[in-house]
């Protein structure tokens, strides 16, 4: 177990440097004139230009700029956005509502995906199975960029079941519609993996043993089969988080939820390079850490890995 953790930790550190390097290199690669981009069509005075160049180290070489970037990232100093706001502060103000939104989305997605996945595995080929299959196909096909505005139009504006927009202090109910939309982006894959995994496990020898022990079918499925089947589903959570982060940009933008995604979307629109790179870098770090946690969780669920 200890060796497993150490190995994963070392891998993560490597991936951290690699991934942040990719982000930085991407930004550097398409940097033509960020100052002009900020100002738009208006001319920029030499004075302002000099200040901005100094602040963002724009006249330095690639390695030097990368050094400043990594230093900022590791010390938690993300610098200032083009509009002059402290990026770290923006982030700390934005994350609570995003966390609430994504937690809700994960719960919604997992509840529906696991229950429906197990059900359709037990009754595979039946009506329920076939309709879930169709539903997952539709969910996979409708991108969030379609789902979010349409859901807002139908359920919030026309039917008025949910509020169309929220604030930073949004309650759970206010966040429910956006969370469901967000959940849709990961639900289909989770459901399909659960189903396949349960189908495979139902054929396993240990299921026969469990039945020979005189256990009820319910106990066999929900205690013996489910725990085994969840192992591949757990590994999905890591990948799903990436989907959720991407989805949150759209969902928060559409529903006006002042979270991380909302700020990021604004930064993209305003072509605010430092803000976008700062936010993305932090999200990448979060993504990596969560993936590490998922791997450890995986080990907790599967004793065969734990004692490797």
């Amino acid at each position: 177990m200890f060796r497993y953790i150490v190995r994963r930790l070392l891998q993560m550190i490597l991936t951290f440097f690699g991934a942040t390097f990719v982000v930085f290199a991407l930004m550097f690669a398409n940097q033509d004139d960020p100052i002009q981009a900020l100002a738009g069509e208006k001319p920029v005075s030499d004075n302002v230009r000099a200040v901005l160049t100094e602040r963002y180290h724009l006249d330095e070489s690639f390695p030097v700029q990368y050094w400043y970037y990594m230093k900022g990232l590791l010390t938690g100093d993300l610098g200032r956005s083009m509009a002059g706001r402290d990026i770290g502060e923006m982030l700390s103000g934005a994350w609570p509502v995003t966390l609430k939104l994504s937690a809700l989305a994960i719960v919604v997605a997992a509840l529906i995906a696991i229950t429906a996945g197990v059900w359709s595995a037990i009754r595979r080929g039946g009506f329920f199975d076939n309709s879930t299959l169709l539903m997952t196909l539709l969910l996979l096909a409708v991108p969030i960029v379609v789902l979010a505005p349409v859901a807002q139009l139908v359920f919030a504006m026309e039917l008025r079941w949910f509020p169309a927009t929220t604030t930073a202090r949004a309650g759970l109910y206010d966040l429910l519609l956006p969370a469901v939309v967000l959940a849709c982006s990961v639900m289909a894959t989770q459901l399909r993996v659960t189903r396949t995994s349960v189908v495979e496990n139902l054929r396993a020898d240990y299921v026969r043993t469990a039945r020979a022990k005189g256990l009820t079918p319910r106990r066999v499925t929900w205690v013996h089969v489910l725990r085994n089947s969840l192992i591949p589903v757990i590994t999905l959570i890591g990948v799903d988080l990436g989907m959720l982060m991407s989805g949150a940009i759209i969902v928060e933008e559409v529903f006006n939820i002042p979270g991380v995604g909302f700020n990021l979307a604004r930064g993209i629109r305003a072509e605010d390079g430092p803000l976008v790179v700062g936010f993305v870098s932090v999200l990448v770090v979060v993504f990596l850490v969560v993936n590490l946690v998922v791997d450890l969780l995986y080990a907790a669920l599967d004793p065969r890995i734990r004692y490797e």
């Binding site: 991936t15 951290f16 690699g18 991934a19 990719v22 982000v23 991407l26 930004m27 988080l241 990436g242 989907m243 982060m245 991407s246 940009i249 990021l264 993209i268 976008v276 790179v277 993305v280 999200l283 990448v284 993504f287 990596l288 993936n291």
Partner: peptide, 10 residues
């Protein structure tokens, strides 16, 4: 390690 959309927006 870098979610697609995040890298793409950068």
């Amino acid at each position: 390690g870098v979610p697609l959309l995040l890298a793409a927006v950068v």
